[in-house]
Design a protein around this nucleic acid. Structure first.
Lengths: 324, 324
DNA sequence: TTGTATGCGTTATCAC
DNA sequence: GTGATAACGCATACAA
C-alpha cells in the first residue's frame, strides 16, 4: 500500500536533505564520493524510480517531441517513424505520434494536445496545417518534404531527383517518359517541395527533346484507393503507347510498386518495354517482385538531419528570450 | 517575453479564484452558466492553453501508454501501431513508442524510461522481457501474441489458424503441406502463443493423414535477412518436390510475400502447383503481385480488444489499493 | 456555488 | 559541500 519512494524518502533514509539527493542526479560532482555511495545504496535499497513528471514541472524539459505523419500505411512514413524512434538512443527524445486525418481542424487538436504536454519541438510531415500557423506555435518546428515557407525544413533535392529519373530511364532506352504524381496539381500544393520533381522531370525532358507526359491526380488515402487509381491510369493510357519503350517515374515508391504489381498481373511478367522508377527509397522498392529503381531519398539521412536541426533549434531557444 | 497564462492569470482577470477556474474544466456543472461564459471568454482572450504536466503531477493521470514493438519493418507491427495510434480519438491515450532492440537489458531501460513518465499502462509485443518481470511493474500490462503467463494478453486463436490453413490448402488440392515458421523452435519460445499454429497445423495434417513438413528457423531481423532465409529454404527443399502440388503456410505475411516474390522471380509467374498462405492479415498480403490467402489475424480487432482490456485494467486499478 | 489551504515530487535560489 | 525554502501549475479536501 506504500507508494513509490521520493527524494524525501531517500533523504530521510540517508539523513541528507532532498536537495542533496537531487544534486546526486544533476550535479554529482558536488558530492563527496562517500556520500555518493551512501545515496546510491539507499536508492537501490528503496528501489527508487525517477519521476520525470515532477522534473518537467520544475525545470520545463519534457524530452518529448511531437511527430505528425499523414498516415502509416505508406512505407515511406512508417520507415520515417522507424528512423525517428531509433534516435532515442542518441538524443533521448520520446515521440508522441499522431497519424494525420487530412482535416486541418483535427490536426490542430492534435497539436493542442501536444502543446499541453509541453513538447520541446514538433516534426511535421503532414500537409494540412500551413507553415505560417505552425510558426505561430513558438516552439521549434521542422517540416519535412512539405510547404515550409515559415518553418525550418528538411527536404531532398527534389529537382535533382526529377533530373536523375529521366537520365535513368533514358539509359534504359525509353522512347516515352511518364511522370506520375500521386497528388493533385492544384494551386495550393504548388508549395510542396516534392513538386519540384515535376519541374526537374519536365525541364530535363524538354532539354533533351524527349516525348513526355505528366499525370497528376489524387491517388487517394488508402492502398486500395491507390490500386484503383493505378488501374484507371493504366487502362486509359497504356493502350496508346504499345510498341514504345515506356519509362515511368512515380512520385513515391508505393505507387510505383502498385503499378509494377498491376503490370505483372496483366502480363505475367514485366515486359521489356516497361521501365519503372520510384522516388522514396523506402524499403518497399527492395521488396518488389522485380526490384524497381529508386531515386534514393535516404530516409535515414532525412531523419538524422532533422534531429540534428531540432537539437540546434531547441538549444537556441533555451538562450533566446521568450516571445509570446 | 511573458509566459503562458495559468489558472491564476485567468482567476485574476475574472476575479474568481483559481479553484473556480479549475472547476470550469473538471466540474463545469458546479458553475453558473453566466460565470462559465465569463471564464470561457477570459480563456480565449488570454489565449489559455491547458498544461497537462501540472495536472499529471496533481492527479496522477498521464493519459500516456507505453508501446514496445520488436520492430517497425514488419508490416504486422507497423499496422498494429497504426491501429493503436488511431484509438486516440476514442480513448485519448497518447503512445510512447519504442522499437525493440532484441536485448532484454535495453528494453528494460525503455521500460524504466516509460515508468518515469508515469505511464498508465504498457502494451508489449516484443518478446525479450518475460511476463513475470513485466507483471512486477505493477501497472496494467497487456501482451500481444507472446509469452503471457503472468500478464493479461490478447491473442488470436493460433491453433485454429493452423487448422484453417491446412483446410484452405487442402481445398486447393495440395499433395504436400509445409509449415514455415520464422522463429527457431527452441525451448524458451515454446510459450509464445504463435507456436500453437504449429500444433494446429501438425495435428490437422495427422488427422487427415496428409504428407507434411515443418521448417522452423530464425529468419533474422531485417528484410534482407528474411530474403536470404527464404532462398536457403527454397533451394534446399523445393527441388525435392517437383511434380507435387505444394501448400505453404507461413507464420507471417511478410515471409509469405518474400517467398511469393522469390518464386515469381524464378518462374516468371506463380506456378499452379504452388499454394501460399500467410497468417497475419497485414496489408502486405493485399499488396502482393498475386494476392496470397491469409488466415486473417485481424490486426484491427486485436488492437481494439487490447484497448478495451487496457481501459478496464486502468479503471480497476483506480479502485484497488496500491500494492508495491 | 465559490474560496482557502495544502499537496503532488522535483529543481532553483539562496543561504550557511 | 550541504540544507531550507520557494517555485512549477493544477487538483482536491474542507470551509464558508
Amino acid at each position: 500500500m506504500n507508494k513509490k519512494p521520493t527524494f524525501q524518502d531517500i533523504a530521510d533514509y540517508t539523513n541528507f536533505s532532498k536537495t542533496t539527493i537531487s544534486r546526486y542526479f544533476n550535479r554529482p560532482d558536488s558530492l563527496t564520493p562517500e556520500n555518493k555511495k551512501i545515496i546510491s545504496k539507499a536508492l537501490k535499497e528503496l528501489n527508487y524510480q525517477e519521476n520525470k513528471v515532477a522534473r518537467i514541472l520544475a525545470n520545463g524539459k519534457t524530452e518529448i517531441l511531437g511527430l505528425i505523419v499523414p498516415n502509416l500505411y505508406l512505407h515511406y512514413y512508417a520507415e520515417m517513424l522507424n528512423q525517428f524512434v531509433h534516435t532515442y538512443e542518441q538524443y533521448g527524445y520520446k515521440f508522441f505520434v499522431f497519424a494525420g486525418s487530412d482535416h486541418a481542424e483535427t490536426e490542430k487538436t492534435y497539436i493542442q494536445e501536444l502543446l499541453s504536454y509541453n513538447i520541446e519541438g514538433l516534426i511535421v510531415l503532414s500537409h494540412t496545417v500551413s507553415s505560417k500557423e505552425l510558426a505561430r506555435l513558438n516552439i521549434p518546428i521542422i517540416t519535412i518534404e512539405r510547404e515550409d515557407v515559415y518553418t525550418s525544413s528538411v527536404n531532398t533535392d527534389n529537382y535533382l531527383g526529377g533530373v536523375q529519373a529521366v537520365e535513368l530511364l533514358e539509359q534504359c532506352n525509353c522512347d516515352t517518359f511518364f511522370f506520375i504524381n500521386t497528388v493533385p496539381d492544384d494551386a495550393y500544393k504548388k508549395t510542396i517541395p516534392a513538386l519540384k520533381r515535376y519541374d526537374g522531370f519536365v525541364n530535363t525532358c524538354k532539354e533533351k527533346d524527349l516525348e513526355y507526359y505528366t499525370y497528376s491526380r489524387d491517388f487517394g488515402n488508402s492502398y486500395s484507393d491507390m490500386q484503383k487509381a493505378v488501374r484507371i491510369f493504366s487502362e486509359n493510357y497504356l493502350p496508346k503507347f504499345q510498341g514504345k519503350t515506356k519509362g515511368f517515374f512515380f512520385s513515391n515508391d508505393t505507387a510505383a510498386n502498385i503499378f509494377l504489381n498491376y503490370i505483372i498481373q496483366e502480363y505475367k511478367e514485366l515486359p521489356k518495354d516497361f521501365k519503372i522508377v520510384g522516388f522514396d527509397g523506402s524499403p518497399i522498392s527492395e521488396q518488389a517482385v522485380i526490384p524497381t529503381s529508386t531515386v534514393a531519398q535516404q530516409i535515414d539521412k532525412i531523419a538524422a538531419t532533422s534531429m540534428e536541426l531540432m537539437a540546434k533549434l531547441i538549444a537556441q531557444k533555451k538562450q533566446a528570450p521568450e516571445k509570446n
